[in-house]
């Protein structure tokens, strides 16, 4: 009875949590200011003449030029996505510190996942006949008799050796 109540409570809590998460995801984020958009873009774009630094982290001339370009384009009414596309059209995906992964890259991981799933299924199906021993081994009267015959023979031979 208590167990059932606990289950119900847990289920209600889970549903409530999921509902809160969905509402939060659906609620539109407050619009970013132009300065916030610019900062976000600077952090996303690679500084062309640095090693693995974002534009935001660098003070080189080209990083400065990209910062200027970001501000100019946002001021001209471009969306952050359009600004990002502008740089990708010139530098390629390389300019993004986190480029979008190509879809084909999923295929090997899917195959490995399928192999792992297959492994689990095979292992389970291989183990189950062992867990429940086949009735032939238990019910055949011949089996205990055979064992007894072997034991008897061993006893006879040991006696023969002792004698």
């Amino acid at each position: 009875m208590i167990r059932q109540a606990a289950f119900t409570l847990a289920a209600v809590a889970l549903v409530a949590l999921a509902a809160v998460a969905v509402v939060n995801l659906l609620r539109p984020a407050p619009p970013l200011t132009a300065a916030q958009q610019a900062r976000a873009l600077e952090a996303e774009l690679r500084c062309p003449d640095c090693q693995g630094l974002s534009v935001a982290e660098s003070r080189t001339t080209s990083a400065g030029a990209i910062r200027t370009q970001i501000v100019r384009q946002l001021d001209a009414g471009q969306t952050p996505a359009q600004v990002r596309d502008y740089f990708v059209a010139r530098y390629g995906e390389w300019i993004l510190l986190e480029p979008a992964s190509p879809v084909w890259l999923l295929i090997p991981f899917l195959l490995i996942g399928a192999a792992a799933a297959g492994l689990i299924v095979w292992l389970r199906s291989a183990r189950s006949p062992m867990a429940a021993p086949s009735p032939t081994l238990v019910d055949t009267p011949a089996a205990p008799d055979a064992a007894e015959a072997v034991r008897q023979r061993v006893r006879d031979e040991v006696e023969a050796l002792d004698a």
Binding site: S62, G64, A65, I66, Q69, R90, Y91, I95
Partner: peptide
């Protein structure tokens, strides 16, 4: 300003 270099990637 480096702007043309950025335009050319």
């Amino acid at each position: 300003s480096g702007g043309t270099a950025v335009d050319y990637g």
